[in-house]
Simulated assay, not measured.
Amino acid sequence: MYLSDPYTIPYKGIYAVADQKNELVEIMEHSSCLGGSAWALYHYSKSPLVIKTRAVGDMMRYLIRAGKSTLNLQSSIAAAGIESVLINGKEIEITYSGLGGGGVGATTCRAYANGVLRCRLSESGGGKQASGTIVVPRRERVLVGIDNTDSKEVGATWTLAHNIASAVDSIEHKYISHTLVQLYPVPDKTQNCVATVLEFACVEGATEGLLEEIKKGLEKYSVSNETGMVALSDFDAASLVEYSRLCRSRMITKELTIKTAKENGVEICIDGKGIIGALAALPWFSQHSESVVI
């Protein structure tokens, strides 16, 4: 057995999206070791800047208030945390601190993750208190809603959506999550009446190319003439919650969908009848358990 670095487990990737005012940041850490990341999630949740934490599969997600804080690290109780999250133009600087093994996670494990531009690290391990600063690109969240790509003979929207998202995944527009959203079972449904929302974290200037690639994939592989694709570049889709509630509780018109999309800055990329469900899917990104309940 040979271990090139026995005390480092690099994260698969670290990505950060900011809101338009640069007041909120969501840090998304793609774990290589779920046990270690779950430990960090618990301890980091106690940091003053952290508003909310959650695990979505092997992705640890931290909703942060941008700024600086002072950590009161305590062994076993609050052994690691996020000291600061600073937005500097096209970059976001994140500083972590930790004790012992938490310090290893705060330094080398995060510094070598995919998506990190550069870093500053202290010594870590053993009984030391350590800190590490990483710089990542400032990204925006891009949500893509898709519905009605299949027929009664072949296909499933959720599988095509995932396969296209995986094919277009890149460091510039990172594929973050895929969520199935149960809709009201209208009479002309294929079978289960489920739409899909894809979540991407895009660097500046990458959104247009991403949407064009997804659109081309749908136009090539969809077997329906009523495919719908919509897209929203925003920190969340809270303004669409009421529309989604209606769509998940009764039949609604395509005219209402188009009106709602225009009022909320949503781009209609493919305008088949599937846009009704595609728009309703957007607020449910990364909420996998809630979205499948009608």
Rank of each mutant, 00 (worst) to 15 (best):
D234K: 04
L211D: 03
I176K: 03
I176N: 02
L211I: 14
E172T: 13
I164K: 05
T196F: 09
H178C: 04
G228A: 07
T196K: 12
V197C: 05
P187L: 00
V168L: 11
V168Q: 11
P187G: 00
H178A: 04
I171L: 13
I164N: 08
Q182W: 02
K215C: 12
A161V: 08
F200Y: 11
K174T: 10
K216Y: 01
D150M: 03
V194C: 00
A161G: 14
G205A: 09
S222H: 01
Q182F: 02
G217Q: 06
I164H: 05
L210C: 04
S222Y: 00
T149F: 01
A201Q: 10
C193Q: 12
K216R: 10
S224L: 03
Y175S: 05
V181I: 11
I214K: 10
A195L: 06
P185T: 04
Y184V: 08
P185D: 03
N192P: 01
V186I: 06
V230P: 02
Y184E: 09
C193F: 06
T196W: 09
A231D: 12
E204L: 14
L198M: 14
T207S: 13
T149R: 01
D188W: 11
S222I: 00
P185V: 03
A201Y: 15
V194Y: 00
N225R: 10
L180K: 15
H162M: 08
E199R: 08
G155N: 02
F235R: 03
